[in-house]
Nucleic acid binder design. Structure first.
Length: 492
RNA sequence: CGGGAUGUAGCGCAGUUGGCUAGCGCACCACGUUCGGGACGUGGGGGUCGGGCGUUCGAGUCGCCUCAUCCCGACCA
């Protein structure tokens, strides 16, 4: 219930968790660190999934599916990769249970031990490259542009609904190219797809940039990312796209014959976004009344609440609503009539606000006489009376207005919380307040680690859009010369 | 994995130094009155007190173990 939602200033974490649970999106499951995504939450994910899938296909990708289990030996073929993931793997060691001879339960059958353990995929590079080995012989087989929608498991120490669960849903693109240049372009193209999706569909401003070497994906030569700023001033990595060089091709022996008939290793990329985007959506826009969903991702865009005293009145209003609903659906809006007769209007208003439905229409006896609806916007919390005639067209346009307004609000927030900082003293003070800090950095991992140790701030990215960062200056920490600013922030 | 807190009905909680048939609010079901911003009355249903072992005449309460959740660290999308 909105009134019970904890004040953001008090404890943002609790506020977030309450919101996720009370808006009926997800809950913790009985399995450690895992979550149950409830129908309303999953409907939002389906919207994201559907749109991303369209964008992947527009860029020439196809969907495929690879096994959940990865033989342990595969994981160790790429040295950096295994080092990055070894600490958080779920491992299958046996394939059978038997009745416990000492009790009523079941125990693992020691006779059913696997010869080689299987890892529940934390990511699929290894099993996919082991397959690509068989698919790629000639330059004519390239490029391979494949995406997989799947679940993955990472046994994290500490978990959090949507942001860091032990199992999560995601998509992972894995591409193979004949040239380095083509793979680099692919990695850039896909991070741009993510940025477009975040901005245009999630109404969430993001910065595109490169990760520093120490923040890079395990096994990548370069990691591109989109970074967003949440309302509590912490940064969230919302998507990544990696240029993998020839690391995986070499580890799995994937060579192709070029036009001259000479063998060469192929060049790779991988890129992914996950259900973490749900967390980003929630934290970027929600207020103390609950979720605020951008129209393009809202499972229900318009909810209609009838206000009635008698059965006749109710029937009459619902009849009107059905007619209006048809008109709205004809222009592509998704509409729900909340005809529950056991709840009062005020309760329904609060409930749909909590769920973030962009527009609410209320019709009562007096609206019926005047031929209007009371239209309430979730993003601005304002109300106005609107005539039935032309309502559908009006709403259709309003959705774009709301979509943009939510973006603008988040954009202004980010602008107001992005600072150029040039002294270490100021840095230490500003980082406590949250936000993006644009600072000079000497480019060394040592300095980066020292800064993190002292302030918990990390380099979110070296921006390649949004902020103009190329300028001469001195490292905030070491004072050594620097040619560009980078974004520092505390992050999730 | 370290520090702290918590676990009692779907949710939020109370339950005193061990002691009666385990309680309250919300939610749920029935009926009635209500209905333009989170209604009210009357009646009703719902519990392996996270799990296990122990101490005791007796355990929600005490001890040990274990599992899970939340917060703060380390790790990460």
């Amino acid at each position: 219930m909105a009134k019970e939602v904890t004040n953001k200033e008090e404890n943002y974490s609790q506020w977030y968790n309450n919101l996720v649970v009370k808006a009926d999106l997800a809950e913790n499951s009985a399995v450690r660190g895992c979550m149950v995504i409830k129908p309303y939450g999953y409907a939002i994910w389906e919207k994201m999934h559907a749109q991303l899938d369209i964008m992947f296909k527009e860029t020439g990708h196809q969907n495929a599916y690879f096994p959940l289990f990865i033989p342990k030996s595969f994981l160790s073929k790429e040295a950096e990769h295994v080092e990055g993931f070894a600490k958080e793997c779920a491992v299958v060691t046996h394939h059978r249970l038997k009745v416990d001879p000492d009790g009523g339960g079941v125990v693992v059958d020691p006779d059913a031990k696997l010869e080689e353990e299987l890892i529940v995929r934390p990511t699929s590079e290894t099993i996919i490259w082991n397959t690509y080995k068989n698919w790629i012989k000639s330059y004519r087989d390239l490029p391979i542009l494949i995406n997989q929608w799947a679940n993955v498991v990472r046994w994290e120490m500490r978990t959090r609904l949507f942001l860091r669960t032990a199992e999560f849903l995601w998509q992972e693109g894995h591409t193979a190219h004949a040239t380095s240049q083509e793979a680099i372009q692919e990695a850039q193209r896909m991070v741009d797809v993510y940025a477009k999706f975040a901005r245009e569909y999630m109404s969430m401003p993001v910065v595109v940039g490169h990760k520093s070497e120490s923040e890079r994906f395990a096994g990548a030569l370069d990691t591109l990312c989109i970074e967003a700023l949440m309302q509590d001033g912490k940064a969230l990595q919302a998507g990544t796209s990696h240029f993998l060089g020839q690391n995986f091709a070499k580890a799995f022996g994937v060579q192709y014959a070029n036009k001259e008939g000479k063998l060469d290793y192929v060049w790779a990329t991988s890129w992914g976004v996950s259900t973490r985007l749900m967390g980003a959506l929630i934290m970027a826009h929600s207020d103390n009344n609950g979720l605020v969903l951008p129209p393009k991702l809202a499972p229900i865009q318009v909810v209609m609440v009838p206000i009635f005293k008698t059965d006749e009145e109710r029937a009459h209003i619902l009849e009107t609503m059905e007619a209006l609903k048809k008109e709205m659906e004809a222009v592509g809006l998704s509409v729900k009539i909340d005809d529950r007769d056991n709840l009062r209007p005020g309760f329904k208003f609060a409930e749909w606000e909590l769920k973030g439905v962009p527009v609410r229409l209320a019709i009562g006896a007096r609206d019926l006489e005047k031929g209007v609806v009371e239209l309430a916007r979730r993003d601005t919390m304002t109300k106005e009376d609107v005539s039935w005639t032309g309502l559908a067209a009006y709403l259709k346009e309003l959705m774009d207005v709301i979509q943009k307004n939510i973006y603008d609000k988040a954009f202004e927030f980010r602008q107001a919380n992005t600072f150029k900082v040039d002294t270490w003293e100021e840095f230490k003070q500003k980082i406590e307040e949250g936000g993006f800090l644009l600072c000079h950095w000497d480019g060394t991992a040592e300095t980066e680690a020292k800064i993190q140790e002292e302030t918990k701030a990390t380099i979110r990215c070296i921006p390649s859009d949004t902020f103009v960062c190329e300028e001469e200056g001195k490292c905030i920490y070491s004072g050594k010369p620097s040619h560009r600013r980078v974004i520092f922030a505390r992050s999730y």
